[in-house]
Each structure stands twice: as C-alpha cells, then as structure tokens.
Simulated assay, not measured.
Amino acid sequence: MLKIPGYEDGPLVHGSAYLDDPLFWPVHLGSSLRGEDAQRAAFGADWDAAMELYRVLSSEREWPVFSVPLSSGHTIHVVYRNIEGDRGVDYLIHHPAWSAAETLAVDDGHFMGPGMAWPELLSAARQPATEGVDNPDARLLLLFPTLGDARLPDDAAVTLTTALAALTLIEEPADVASMLLENQGQWAPARWRLANGVRVNDGGHSYRNPSNAFALPGGRLREISNALDSRPTTVRQTSGCSSQLGKLGLLAGGGRADGDGEALGPGGPASCSPVFPVVPRTIWHASGTGGRLDSPDTALVTTALDTVSYGAYEHACWRAAKATLAESAGNSRRTMARFCVVMT
C-alpha cells in the first residue's frame, strides 16, 4: 500500500494508469469547468463515459495518487480523498526530511487555496523527472487546480491549450483553456509577491498567505517557494579557487573528481567560473559549518549560512568542504562533497 507520511486516511494506490485516458483530464479539471457551456466544450458527447470514470476515481475502496517529483527532492502528491460525504482532491507536498506532508491546496466543497502562482505551475510542470509523472503536459494539467493568479502572462492560454490538445480529445482546446483560466480553482485569483525572496499571496483561503492564522510556518513557505521555482543557476568562483579545488581532489576543468570518473558538473575549460551548479538550500538542512553526509548518491556539502555575498559564501563553502573531507577520513570520496549549496 502506498504511504504518504502524515496522511494515513485511506487506501492510497498509484493512479498513473488513469493518465492515458483522455477523459481523465476534463474530469480532473471539473471544478474549473463551470456551467453548461464549459462542460459541453470539455466533455462533448462523452458525458456519460466521463461520469462513469468519475465514479471509479471516487471509489472508497481505492484512493488514486499521482506523484509529481521536483528537482529539489520534494514531491507533490495529488490525492483523490474518497471519504463518503467528504470527497475531494488534496494537493500535498513532501520532502524526505519532513516528518509529514504539508497541504498546498484542497479542491472540494470546503476548498483551500490557491497553492501556486502561474510561474510556479509552469516551473513545476517543466522540471525533469525520472519517476512519478514525468510528462510536462500531464504535470501541468494535474497541478492546474492549485492555480490562483490574478496576473497571468499573455501566453498562458497558449501553454494550456497545447497541453489539452496533447492529452485530450477536446475539439476546441483553446476555448476550454480560456474557460479554465477564467475560473481558476474555487477561490478568487490571488495576487502574488516576493517577500524576502519567498513567494506568498493575499488569498483568504491560502496556506501560502502568511497573514492567515492557518498559514504554513515561515520555514516551510520559503522551502516550498524555492522548490516550486527551481531555476538552474551557477555560482562564479573567485580567482585562486583552482588550487583549493585541487587540494580537495575536485578538478574544475573536466568536471571530474578524485579520478573516479564521477561527474561534478558541466565540463569546460580548466577554470573556476562557473563550476558548481547552485541547488536549492532546502535539499539538505544545514548542520553547522560542514557536516558528514551518509548518502553516496546525493552527497552535498552544506553550510549554515542564511544570507551571504558570493565572495563570503565561496570561502565558507570551501572551508566546509575541506572540513567534511577531513572528518570523513577513510571514507571514499565518492560519498563526499560534490556540490556547494548556496543558501538562498
């Protein structure tokens, strides 16, 4: 049985088999398809078949779950909560370091949201994945019901139309896309802003509005904001870092380390600018200047810096890396530092 930490209400099962059914998508988007015109445009002559599919999806015996992994290590779980008299769809986000999943949005009669701004929806949809739901169009439509954004870009309808055309049999996907964007979620479209680098909104029913008494804690808000808006970037290293990298056994030029052939990052000329990709601070929590890491697959050097300049960051990062290697003498460097994490 599928398990989501902190969410043990029902018989969770993988729902990926439903994603190949073109009717699944208008059913899933149903709360934003209001009125006869919208339903006619989305379902056409397939209304009866769509209702039968809905009955299967809402069976109390199985609660379908669709998992959308993010590059940060977080996963968004879309859960069909099939409790008699209290059916709905819960949008949860979880990280392996958390004891329990957090709720982003709830799509039911007692709705909570929005959970995402448009840029975040687009980012989450386009992040690469090797497991769970990996199709960008499917990810976009799965997460669309969490959207509530009063400032949509001009090309939002085109993006949504493309996804609908790829995955459904809707005859006029552009018309349905426009209707969906006009009726985002069950809440009023919110205004989003960046507050100290954290994306928050003014929605009265949103867990991501820090003014609400039920809002997520500040640390979670920051972590979720970073995870949903995962944009690759790089840190430029200072002159002289080549020698420090050499002392650590980390070679900048070919993107290799310790002669074991393990890639450090993009190859290139033997310089330090740029070398390491910046990954979100929320992948690993800091535990002092440098910490010992046990995972051979995702070993990272962490620092306890919250806000630092690049120059200060670089020196602290190298000190942490050297300290980590020194403390782990006898362990294979394959299990040790491969990236420096900038704390944003």
Results as ranks from 00 to 15, higher is better:
253 G>K: 07
170 I>V: 11
138 A>T: 09
22 P>G: 03
73 G>Q: 10
342 V>S: 14
199 R>A: 14
51 M>K: 14
54 Y>M: 01
252 A>G: 04
159 T>A: 12
93 I>L: 08
196 N>C: 05
147 L>G: 04
117 A>M: 05
167 L>E: 01
161 T>Q: 14
172 E>Y: 09
336 M>N: 11
17 A>M: 13
329 A>T: 10
200 V>Q: 11
315 H>Q: 13
81 R>Q: 02
113 G>F: 01
142 L>H: 00
309 S>H: 12
263 A>C: 10
151 R>I: 02
340 C>H: 10
265 G>V: 01
340 C>V: 07
74 H>V: 08
319 R>H: 10
277 P>F: 13
60 E>K: 15
116 M>C: 09
319 R>A: 03
45 A>F: 03
199 R>Y: 03
85 G>Y: 07
209 N>M: 10
141 L>Y: 08
213 A>M: 04
229 D>Q: 12
211 S>N: 11
104 L>T: 00
55 R>N: 09
119 P>Y: 10
5 P>N: 04
289 T>K: 03
67 S>P: 00
89 V>W: 14
323 A>D: 10
304 A>L: 06
16 S>V: 15
331 N>D: 13
84 E>K: 15
163 A>G: 01
186 Q>T: 07
269 P>H: 15
67 S>I: 09
21 D>H: 04
276 F>W: 13
274 P>H: 14
341 V>L: 10
316 A>W: 13
83 I>T: 01
3 K>Y: 13
144 F>R: 06
81 R>D: 12
322 K>E: 09
93 I>V: 13
177 A>Y: 06
234 T>H: 12
114 P>G: 06
123 S>E: 13
264 L>C: 09
234 T>I: 06
153 P>N: 09
279 V>N: 08
135 N>W: 06
134 D>K: 01
121 L>M: 04
291 G>F: 12
78 V>S: 00
85 G>A: 02
306 D>Y: 04
236 R>I: 08
117 A>C: 02
92 L>N: 01
343 M>F: 10
200 V>R: 02
103 T>C: 09
48 D>K: 11
261 G>A: 08
258 D>H: 11
277 P>I: 05
230 S>T: 07
209 N>W: 05
162 T>E: 07
96 P>G: 14
233 T>Y: 14
54 Y>D: 05
184 Q>N: 09
214 F>Y: 15
327 E>G: 13
127 Q>C: 00
151 R>P: 00
340 C>A: 15
305 L>F: 15
316 A>P: 00
92 L>Q: 01
197 G>E: 15
248 L>K: 14
276 F>I: 03
33 L>Q: 12
242 S>L: 14
285 H>A: 10
287 S>L: 11
255 G>V: 01
340 C>Y: 01
139 R>C: 03
29 L>K: 09
337 A>V: 09
105 A>D: 06
260 D>I: 06
333 R>G: 04
188 A>Q: 15
19 L>T: 03
1 M>H: 02
283 I>L: 11
305 L>K: 07
77 H>I: 00
213 A>Q: 14
21 D>K: 11
337 A>L: 15
208 R>H: 11
83 I>E: 12
320 A>C: 01
305 L>D: 14
96 P>Q: 15
